[in-house]
Design a protein around this nucleic acid. Structure first.
Length: 556
RNA sequence: GGCCCUAUCGACAAGCGGCUUAAGUCUCAGCCCUCUCAAGGCUGCAUUCACGGGUUCGAAUCCCGUUAGGGUCACCA
């Protein structure tokens, strides 16, 4: 009768190291009490998902606020789904939000004592542990084919029993060691399965940092831990990696709750101490068709891809603040009390997490973003806007670089004051609102009739514009300018007092607001614009006169 | 379908047995202010906490059931 050891040696003849060796290779980390080791462990299957950003942010934050370590691990064990190059993209996109790991995978290189941090490079490490598990009789080769498994499922469905590979249904766990060796020698392909000792009728109590204690059924599934391609499945990689990398706190989406019993049994089987778990609520969206909540989907929802926000030019800080708003209910109050404080000062608290998934609320993000952008000074705003433009908007870049000081003046209208203007929620809003400052853009706009108030006759408009042009004076303060405008209006039949006008509108062409509107439309080719006085100061006398003349020529 | 998680305004949510005839923020509506717009100020928007039972002198808060939503049942993570 052959032993488990012989089986293990047959399967992994080249594996000489033991788990003890691994423990020496990856000694416990020397950390301050309370310091958490967290990680972000995505698979390289595409660009950064908004939910992943959220998860990464939480992991990063907890490490940071406990003086711990946050690292990045690439889970590339599924070669079929892998999209080359996306691992690096993920790192870069995160770095964009200042979520930078102190160790781990960085794309073209790795840093840290607990690597490799790329799972495909850790095959030997997994095999060492599996070899041990086989020796202990806690893992075995399974020769079932896809068809066998399909057949099993059908039988189980027909008999209305729980589907899966477990207990009496786990055919290969019942082979003797000799039989297994025989089968291997005959060249039959196989995977390695974990041999569960659990019974799903038994309950285990598992603690979750966010949800508290949960009662879950014990695992009884003989899950596969090593695939036929020689790479581990997620569950097993989680055991090995998070143990040897010294992870103390696993933050992941709540979809993992149901596999928690597997992970608990895996850790038990090796005598490893499991990490703390925090299962995060998932960001949801309301499905327009069904009216139900569902996970943000990259295919259906533009806001599922972080790249969307970056392309649109949402300020990064706005996105982070919004994510914190979802994460901790007290964050908004904290922000209001500490308006000029670094987000570093805010302490995330698992007790303040909501238990169900929040709907992604674009209007709220818009509000926060406006807030963030409006409080930037002109230099900060310009720097960020230009950085965005260089990547996503050649037109905006051209506008800014054409005359950067002028650009600063433009976006500084009603900025840098107690209650700043809030008209941009993202950088892509900038150019459409200020394009009219550009000569060519203005001339282009004249292809359309200017949107004057149709209740005011052309003659009045013409006369007003002519006098305005001939007596143009910009060398004065705003109040003087404003009074001049009122006086000009009065000469042309516009009331200089609102109440007076309201009492007897028939006697006037309008009131001074209507008069100013004529100038605004003439100069800006639009019925709305930032403060006219500031616009005029930036444009300068010559350009104003040019525009008035052009407009005049267009009025029949 | 089994199992698990969750359930307070349109959204995010406070609330942890009496202080709640339910905070705050966003949205929305109205008013005011303003040269337009963006803002800003003020006001309004849950007699009720999915529903039904219990426990209690007393429940949004504890228990049970129902319903609804979400998750999960892979050689994917």
């Amino acid at each position: 009768m052959a032993t488990n050891k012989e089986l293990a040696d047959l399967i992994f003849p080249d594996i000489k190291e033991t788990v003890k060796d691994l423990e020496k290779r990856f000694p416990p980390r020397k950390l301050k009490p309370g310091a958490e080791v967290t990680r972000f462990a995505p698979s390289p299957t595409g660009f950064l998902h908004t939910g992943s950003l959220f998860t990464a942010l939480i992991a990063y934050k907890f490490a940071r606020q406990t003086d711990g370590i946050y690292f990045f691990r690439l889970e590339d064990t599924d070669q079929k789904r892998e999209i080359k190059g996306t691992g690096l993209d993920l790192v870069n996109q995160l770095a964009n939000f200042d979520i930078i790991s102190s160790e781990g995978y960085f794309g073209d290189y790795e840093k840290g004592e607990y690597g490799p941090y790329t799972q495909s490079k850790r095959a030997d490490i997994y095999k060492i542990v599996i070899k041990e598990l086989i020796k202990k009789g806690r893992a075995y080769p399974c020769f079932c084919t896809k068809e066998d498994l399909e057949q099993l499922r059908l039988v189980q469905e027909a008999n209305k029993v729980i589907p899966g590979y477990y207990g009496e249904y786990a055919k290969c766990r019942h082979y003797s060691v000799d039989e297994a060796i025989e089968l291997i020698k005959s060249g039959k392909p196989y995977v390695i399965r974990f041999k569960s000792k659990g019974n799903h009728l038994n309950h285990i109590r598992v603690h979750d940092e966010i949800r508290g204690d949960m009662d879950l059924s014990q695992n009884d599934q003989d899950i596969v831990i090593l695939k036929s391609d020689g790479l581990p499945t997620y569950h097993f990689a989680h055991l090995v990696d998070d143990h040897f990398m010294g992870t103390t706190l696993v933050t992941r989406g709540e979809e993992w709750i149901s596999s928690l019993p597997i992970h608990i049994e895996l850790f038990e089987s090796m005598g490893f101490k499991p990490p703390k778990y925090a299962h995060l609520p998932v960001i949801m969206v309301n499905d327009k068709e069904t009216g139900n909540k569902r996970k943000l989907s990259k295919r259906k929802d533009k806001e599922a891809a972080v790249s969307f926000f970056l392309e649109e030019g949402y300020p990064k800080l706005g996105i982070i603040e919004y994510l914190y708003t979802i994460a901790n209910s007290n964050f908004e109050a904290w922000l209001m009390e500490n308006p000029n404080t670094s987000l570093d000062e805010f302490k995330l608290d698992f007790n303040k997490f909501s238990l169900d998934g929040a709907l992604f609320d674009l209007p709220k993000l818009a509000f926060i973003s406006k807030e963030v952008l409006s409080h930037l000074n002109k230099d900060e705003f310009t720097a960020q806007c230009l950085a965005w433009a260089k990547q996503y908007s050649p037109e905006t870049t051209k506008f800014i670089e054409n005359d950067i000081d002028r650009f600063k003046k433009i976006i500084n209208i009603e900025r840098e004051q107690e209650k700043p203007r809030k008209d941009y929620e993202k950088f892509s809003d900038v150019l459409p609102k200020i394009r009219f400052f550009d000569k060519d853009a203005y001339d282009q706009a004249l292809n359309q009739p200017l949107p004057y108030n149709e209740f005011i006759s052309k003659e009045v408009i013409k006369a007003l514009l002519i006098e305005y042009r001939d007596h143009l004076n910009l060398d004065c303060d705003e109040q003087t300018w404003f009074n001049d405008m009122k006086a000009l209006g009065k000469k042309h039949g516009f009331a200089d007092d609102r109440k007076v006008y309201k009492k007897d509108p028939q006697s006037y062409n309008g009131w001074y607001a209507d008069c100013i509107a004529i100038i605004r439309v003439t100069i800006c080719a639009s019925t709305n614009a930032p403060k006219l006085y500031d616009v005029l100061q930036i444009l300068g006398k010559e350009e104003i006169i040019r525009r008035v003349n052009l407009a005049l020529s267009k009025i029949q």
